[in-house]
């Protein structure tokens, strides 16, 4: 993939950060507004995919980036499991125990552990989709 014209590159440079910000907003407000880890993770992956499509793959050292995204994926799912078993440390023998204090519903810091779950699911989904896309792109340029 060669990359597109300078117009597309400039517009992408302006917008991809804001798309990333929007994805983070969707993830963080998953317990208040429609959205959550899945939708936000896919939008975050979309911002990176936009950069790769616009700038071409020579712009990034992609092999390294693919390893990093796989690493993030593993870290995300591991933290998710760790939080799920986290009740054991507080001597509560329930898997997926909502162990943080609840707070008042409707605030950003509420719903106990659900926002934290959302963040880790967002990391996992974003890394998974990014590595799927990069695998296809690298496979295409291989031979």
């Amino acid at each position: 993939m060669k990359g597109m014209t300078i117009i597309v590159k400039n517009v992408t440079a302006l917008l991809s950060g804001l798309i990333f910000l929007y994805g983070c907003y969707i993830v963080l407000h998953g317990h208040l507004t429609p959205g959550g880890g899945f939708a936000g993770g896919i939008i975050i992956a979309g911002s990176f995919i936009l950069l790769v499509i616009a700038n071409g793959i020579q712009y990034f050292r992609l092999n390294k980036e693919k390893e990093e995204s796989s690493l993030f994926e593993g870290a995300g799912i591991f933290c998710f499991l760790l939080l799920a078993t986290g009740g054991l440390f507080l001597a509560v023998p329930v898997f997926f125990k909502n162990l943080l204090p609840g707070g008042t519903p409707g605030e950003l810091l509420s719903a106990g552990i659900i926002p934290v779950y959302n963040i880790f699911i967002g990391i996992e989904v974003a890394a998974a989709l990014l590595s799927i896309f990069l695998a296809f792109v690298i496979f295409k340029t291989e031979d």
Partner: peptide, 19 residues
């Protein structure tokens, strides 16, 4: 669950195993 969005509440609290 403390979550205003019921879908997220069901997904991550009642049905965490599915997720």
């Amino acid at each position: 669950t403390g979550s205003v969005n019921l879908v997220t509440g069901v997904l991550l609290d009642y049905r965490g195993f599915d997720t």
